[in-house]
């Protein structure tokens, strides 16, 4: 044996394999996500984590804290703020993420959209999403020269995402070409991009909605209060319950805000995000609801209901 003298130390007997139980599915997912996040930090010059402040973002953030512990997260968070966010969401971003965790969050707003007064009432969902979310995202990535954006997308969310790689590159226009995906073998990720291309990395690819909630429960991950039921002022519109979150909400003829006990399953822009009637005030209650309601998650997001290929098209256009 060629032990160097300085490192000679007591050699313990090899640990017995039975002493360590097999990893549960959640711990397998957790380890995979941590591996991906570490790979991003090493393989790119200037990563950013897209942080929508929603539950998936919060899980991703928690995994990043684990991945780099005891160091801090080696990249900033980017929140594309549409200016029509729920107030409680902004408050959570400011007080918990920036305040308590002390993280660097870049909140990026579309100057063009604000200048032109683009809002979800006068503009079609397509134009609105493009101006207030898609374009500022591309602008921010270009402005700060981020070469990889880490996103919280899950493959169980929707059909086109089910087919996307964990490391998924975008062309110069930040567009996804589903017909030109790279092989992705084992846990070896091809992180190289050509000039002008950029990369998206999805560490939560293999998590399901239930996994996310179970992990939030297990790890006690703080979330924006909107996920939990509380009395909130809402109007009924086109079959959705829309929260009247501030004075900018335009009421139609005959609409009147009523206080209902509701919560949100996803957090988009408040005028286009439907609430659900619920009494779930804890994560356990929410899981209980999930087990019984069996309505898939994006149901509550009016933007997505246009047609079944809508999301794929948006991604081809550069929506995250």
């Amino acid at each position: 044996m060629h032990h160097s003298n300085s490192s000679r130390a007591r050699v313990l007997p090899a640990s017995s394999p039975s002493a360590l139980a097999p990893l549960s599915h959640l711990r397998r997912l957790e380890a995979e996500s941590i591996h991906i996040l570490r790979e991003v930090s090493e393989a790119f010059e200037n990563p950013v984590m897209l942080f929508s402040v929603g539950k998936d973002s919060c899980v991703m953030l928690h995994l990043a804290r684990k991945a780099f512990f005891p160091g801090s997260i080696p990249f900033p968070l980017l929140h594309i703020d549409s200016t029509w966010e729920f107030r409680e969401l902004i408050e959570f971003r400011e007080s918990y993420v920036k305040g308590e965790l002390g993280l660097n969050v870049i909140a990026y707003v579309s100057d063009e959209g604000v200048r032109d007064g683009v809002n979800p009432f006068d503009y079609s969902s397509q134009v609105y999403t493009d101006v207030m979310r898609t374009r500022p995202l591309k602008e921010a990535l270009t402005k700060y020269r981020f070469d990889v954006a880490i996103g919280g997308g899950r493959r169980d969310e929707e059909k086109s995402r089910a087919k996307e790689r964990i490391f998924s590159f975008r062309d110069q226009q930040h567009r996804w070409d589903p017909k030109n995906q790279r092989p992705e073998l084992w846990d070896l990720y091809n992180t190289w991009v050509h000039r002008g291309q950029s990369m998206r990395a999805f560490p939560l690819s293999n998590w399901t909605e239930l996994d996310v909630w179970q992990y939030i429960h297990l790890e006690k991950i703080p979330l924006a209060p909107l996920y939990f039921a509380a009395p909130r002022p809402v109007v009924e519109r086109d079959g959705d319950m829309i929260m009247v979150d501030d004075e900018r909400m335009r009421l139609r003829e005959g609409e009147e805000a009523q206080t209902r006990v509701v919560r949100f399953r996803t957090l988009g822009c408040y005028p286009v995000t439907g609430a659900v009637t619920s009494e779930a005030t804890t994560v356990l209650d929410i899981v209980g609801e999930l087990l019984t309601t069996r309505f898939s998650e994006r149901q509550g997001r009016a933007v997505d209901r246009d047609e079944s290929a809508a999301m794929e098209r948006k991604k081809r256009d550069g929506y995250f």
Binding site: T277, T282, G288, L291, T292, T293
Partner: peptide, 10 residues
């Protein structure tokens, strides 16, 4: 839809 009435106990 009133899921909470059907929801399992905590």
């Amino acid at each position: 839809m009133s899921p909470s009435s059907l929801a399992p106990t905590p």
